[in-house]
Design a protein around this nucleic acid. Structure first.
Lengths: 171, 171
DNA sequence: CACTCTTGGTTCAAGTTTTAAACAAACCTA
DNA sequence: TAGGTTTGTTTAAAACTTGAACCAAGAGTG
């Protein structure tokens, strides 16, 4: 089986993608580090928690939605907990689980830095895209995500993966 | 000025993008680490050199096309040089510059690991995209790149940025 | 009930990578 | 020549990632 190399079109797309992701991540990381004192990943943790019911999520679920290893998440949450932005709670139903909870201070920090973050995402990305391109982007990347790890999952659960399991949210 | 939050469509696109980039980078890094013993960035260095005239590029130019800092590139090239995949040469025209040259061994390693890499890129990305989506991707991200750092550059030089300056290639 | 298997999460040590600031050399311009 | 810029590296510190090992708790089985 001989290698099917990338076509010129694919090469151009790939290069553009690589360059853009580098620049984007740099810009966003710089902005967040500046304004919120944290890297993008940490911000994403806070953001995801803030949208979860009762602002709490199981570590494993959080790791899954963020597409990172649990180890990596443990590291992030430990930092955030040290800064008082997140608190860990035990799960009453499953005593193995620990639940990351966004604290009030975490909420404050998030709300304070969200505008700047959104501003950056807009300035670097969405303000340069036509509405049609936004749709295209979503389709392209949801496809990639599904292919890369959703192969075994039933379609339809991808939008809100954090509602799949018991969220230990009952008080 | 009140914050213009992301629309639901933009949010979906953004989340999909973030998830996909995480998964993609993970997959590609894992594959390259496995098969070539190096992270994606290092591979990109080799790949870019291999396509340059005489397989040589100024450090600064290389950093610019890779969208990384010179410091970061210095680190990468140092590693690659230690492994014999890249060699540094002085530039005759400008004695400040140093030129990274892909060695024969580097070429071998690259050629040996390229098929697996392309295979991964295909499997994770392009084999899931319609030709139209490849074009959409290119347009979206070239726009982003141009906006993020090409604002001051004349349009038309984006495709082959490494030919812009003296490449110190005259043997 | 033991027994095993799996899951959830952390710890630990090692290594990798990034950053930022400082530096030196070379170039350029007047 | 002086002053400013570009190139590239060095350095030290910090940040991050990895992978394996580990423990505790649930789940399934006989």
């Amino acid at each position: 089986m001989t290698t099917r190399w990338l076509t010129p079109e694919e090469q151009r797309a790939w290069r553009a993608y690589l360059a853009a992701t580098h620049l984007l991540e740099d810009a966003i990381d710089r902005q967040l580090q500046q304004d919120a004192g944290m890297p993008h990943l940490f911000y994403s943790v806070l953001a995801n928690l803030s949208e979860a019911p009762e602002r709490r999520l199981r570590m494993t679920d959080l790791a899954e939605t963020l597409k990172i290893t649990r180890s990596r998440l443990t590291y992030a949450v430990t930092r955030l907990e040290r800064d008082g932005l997140v608190r860990r709670e035990d799960c009453a139903w499953d005593k193995r689980s620990s639940i990351a909870v966004l604290t009030d201070e975490g909420t404050e920090v998030l709300e304070r830095s969200a505008p700047g973050h959104v501003e950056t995402v807009r300035a670097t990305l969405f303000d340069r895209l036509a509405p049609e391109q936004v749709r295209q982007m979503e389709e392209i990347f949801t496809g990639v995500v599904r292919g890369l790890q959703g192969d075994g999952a039933e379609p339809g659960t991808d939008d809100v993966p954090w509602r799949r399991r018991s969220s230990c949210s009952g008080s």
